[in-house]
Every structure is written in structure tokens, then in C-alpha cells.
Simulated scan of single mutants.
Amino acid sequence: MSESPRERLFAAQTTPGQRRALTVAAVVAGLALASVHWAGLLVGGALVGLCRPTLRRAIVAGLGFGVVVIAVAAAQLSLAGTLDESLAMGSILLVGVVVPLVAGPLGASVRGLLPDASLDGE
């Protein structure tokens, strides 16, 4: 018989190579969605969080996703030549920094809906 989706997810979460590949794919998908709509930050955080075997690791991965989003946004502003002007905006800049740092872990908290995968191999 074939494995259930939950069993396949748990197998991927506990296999380091598969977990890395899934995380890279989740980050790319999340960045693509976040470039279209702010809710992509939540979805990206959820996707990255589902790649992790425990809720604690999922929240940290969601925070990492938020940091990647900020780095990509800064790189885009730098390439456009508007990074200096953007940094000079003051407190409004904080919204653009705080939102990814909150939305990533918030989306990753969806990992709490599933039981932790067993980490016997690690």
C-alpha cells in the first residue's frame, strides 16, 4: 500500500537531504508569493515551517524566512538604486522590517497542527 501524505511528510522532515530540498523549494515559493501579495509571507512561513520536524524548529525557520525576505527586499532596493532613500524614511521603514519578522514565524506556527516527527536518526 502507498504511504499517507502525513507519513511522507514525516519521512521528509526527518531526512536531512529531503528537508533541505523542501526548505529551498518552500523559500522560493514563499518569495514568489510574497512578491505578489503580503499574505505570501504567511504562506511562505507555513511552507517553511512544514519542512521542519518540530514546532520549535518551525518557528525558527519561519523567522529565518522573514530574514531572507528582508535581505531580498534590500537587494532589490539596492539594485534599483533606492536603498539610501528607503533607509532615510525612518519609522515607516520599521513596518517593512517588522512585518516579515512577524509573519514568517506566525505562518510557521501552522506546524503546531501536526504532531512532532520522531527524531530518532538525529
Score class of each variant (00 low, 15 high):
Leu47Ala: 14
Ile70Trp: 01
Ala46Pro: 04
Arg57Trp: 00
Leu77Gln: 13
Leu47Arg: 11
Ile70Ser: 04
Val68Tyr: 12
Leu47Pro: 00
Ser78Gly: 15
Ala61Asn: 09
Phe65Tyr: 14
Gln76Val: 15
Gly62Gln: 15
Leu47His: 10
Ile59Pro: 03
Ala75Leu: 14
Ala46Ile: 05
Gly66Ser: 04
Arg57His: 02
Gly62Arg: 15
Val68Asn: 11
Gln76Ser: 12
Leu79His: 13
Thr54Ser: 12
Leu63Thr: 13
Pro53Trp: 10
Ile70Gln: 07
Arg56Trp: 02
Arg52Pro: 01
Leu50Lys: 03
Cys51Glu: 00
Ala71Ser: 14
Ala61Gln: 12
Cys51Asn: 02
Val60Met: 11
Gly49Cys: 07
Arg56Lys: 14
Arg52Ser: 00
Gln76Leu: 14
Leu77Gly: 02
Pro53Asp: 01
Ser78Leu: 07
Leu79Arg: 15
Val60Arg: 12
Arg52Gln: 15
Phe65Gly: 04
Val48Trp: 10
Gly62Ser: 11
Gly62Lys: 14
Leu50Arg: 04
Leu79Cys: 05
Arg52Thr: 01
Val67Pro: 02
Thr54Phe: 11
Val69Gly: 03
Val48Glu: 07
Phe65Met: 04
Ala75Cys: 02
Gly62Asp: 06
Val48His: 10
Gly62Ala: 13
Gly45Gln: 12
Leu47Glu: 01
Ser78Pro: 00
Gly45Ser: 10
Ala58Gly: 12
Gly64Asp: 08
Ala74Asp: 05
